[in-house]
Amino acid sequence: AEQLSLAPLDGPAQESLQLVSELKDLSSSCAVDVSTVWWEAAGSRELCVVTACESSVTLWKPLVPDRWEKVQIWQLGEIPVIQIVPLPDACNVVCIALGDLEIAEIRLLLYSSEHDSFKQSLLKTGTIKAVLGLKERRLVSSCRTVQEQQVEITSLSETGGSKDRQTLLPPEETVLAFAEVEGMGEALVGTTAANSVVVWNLKTGQLLRKMPVGYSYPASICHRAYADSGLLFVVLSHPHAKESEARGNPAFCVIAFNPRTARSRGVMFSSLPHGHAGRQVPGASGCVPLYLEGDVRDTLATAVLTSGAIAVWDLLLGHCTALLPPGSPGTWALARWATAGAWLLAGRRDGTVCLYQY
């Protein structure tokens, strides 16, 4: 294992990212997403890595020491893969979203013990605006037609179909992201195109509250939520936020909402590390993207910055704790947390995926 020397960071804490192993798919150079999945075979359950390129998805099994073996490659059809949808506690199933600019299909990739073969199944089609994998083999999605929006929970069967479907009452505005609520298993939150946070009761499907995020935090995307002491703490990011002198360069923020009154207050702002703000675009007066995309697990956030670096923030401390510089042979394109363990999955533009221990 190679210990990386990290760039100097603002703030007192400097955690380390230790390179554990590297996965290189020589047949692919177009990684679009990476994730992890629990996979059980021959009585042994292991955390495997899943990589996706536009036309195929590969399952990698760990070998000792620090080596990975391709277990299965699923070839997809004409619609490109655009996202892996992690299912937090599911085993032997990979969920993927396919489409062009928007999600048009959701498919399951799985192993059928009945037929002793790997297979894929179509779960949902439509104009899907947002999808999130939930605990207990469930999936929530928002689907838009010209007339209406459908927000639906789909329970997955062991054979790759849908066991049960439940509709949630949709808000008027399009839901663009979902997040489960830690500490309150029956609650679900979402963020809408009109920059509101909505709260549902998962059991009854009721829409409990719609709360404005406020003009200070434009184009918010929710990542995680935590219920504590009568408040709802929602982790939001602003992928297209403008730089603000007052707040620095916020990448993630934690907003406390009082669901009783719908009033809110920002409690923590995680700024971009010094020298890694958005690219300076000549003639652009604002709306310069500060980062490309990110991921949050527990209280850790990570994102690929427009500088080509990957940053890690501790949301409780409110500052950047680790940074992977762009380096060679290519800049970073993907940053994801493993669904278990303290692994950071970092994807390069050339298709290489590096596993770091945080």
Partner: peptide, 23 residues
Amino acid sequence: CSESDLGPISLNWFEELSAEAPP
């Protein structure tokens, strides 16, 4: 965060809003 910022806080907000919201 305090009640002066956010208004009256209820520990049972989820149950209360579920009882009040349309089914």
